[in-house]
Write a protein that binds this DNA or RNA. Structure first.
Lengths: 143, 143
DNA sequence: CTTCATAAAGATTATATATTCTTAAAATGA
DNA sequence: TCATTTTAAGAATATATAATCTTTATGAAG
């Protein structure tokens, strides 16, 4: 069970944070990413493939191939990765599962959840990937 | 796709809010609950069965049987229902899926998510079901 | 006692998500 | 050119969740 992101999205975020943190222009093979994050190689490979299609990740085939961020870490936000993988339903749908939840026909926790949703959105948009470098490196070191 | 609760939990919350809102001591058959909430009868029946085991719901078998809250709405909080169905993993696990996320080994968004998690917990604990009566009735009317 | 509508229980099916496997294509370097 | 390593692509499998179906037990009312 995941919290608010799918497992795909969690791993996608982890991988992008990792690629941003090591901050080398070079491509990193999926095996190395998987090893560092301790997640399945084939799965993260698939996820990065889809992010390649989205334009967030650059991939190089063949020997010495691998994945890297398609742009500078200072140009990528967490929300970009979430949008590419899970989409923005998290910020659109009713937290209690009621249909058509809106200011007109609000659910019982509409206003409170609205505040939380805004704060969650800010968490994903306020900073760019480069701001997480230090914390990411420390976390990965302790995996 | 759901936001933070499973579909079971969403429907369980809806049903409990409904039972609290109509505020009649009598049992309501699952068919009536399903009709009011526009959700599958068999599914909500199964969910309420499990909440009966948890002690939140009272059930009466046979003709004129049905479900009602096991306690007064002023004695039940949303968190009770969430705990019974989804458990509290939402408040324990890392939002980015990293293992062992803690103040010692925090993930890159540990602090920010911590604030949100606390606020979300408050949303589910601050008020008891009776506080949502009006909003629930208005919402159900517009389904 | 019989009928009928209901919850309970468990099996089954369907769907979504997660994960792995297999093959092909690409690119490097010998 | 050839061997090797890697991503790409898609198929296949596994698992979790959602939803339905079937049967049984229950209890009210005639």
């Amino acid at each position: 069970m995941t919290i608010i992101f799918s497992k795909k999205c969690e791993y996608g975020l982890q991988a992008c944070l990792y690629l941003a943190a090591i901050n080398t222009g070079a491509v990193i093979p999926s095996g190395e990413i998987a090893k560092q994050l301790k997640i399945p190689k084939e799965f993260i490979s698939k996820i990065l493939q889809s992010l390649t299609t989205s334009g967030l990740i650059y991939s190089k085939k063949g020997k010495l191939g691998g994945f890297s961020l398609a742009k500078d870490p200072s140009k990528i936000k967490l929300i970009d990765i979430v949008t590419a993988i899970d989409g923005l339903q998290l910020f659109e749908k009713c937290v209690l599962g009621f249909p058509n939840c809106s200011p007109d026909t609000p659910c019982p926790v509409h206003d409170k959840w609205g505040e939380l949703r805004t704060k969650a959105y800010q968490m994903l948009t306020d900073e760019t990937l480069d701001a997480f470098t230090e914390k990411t490196l420390r976390k990965i070191k302790n995996l």
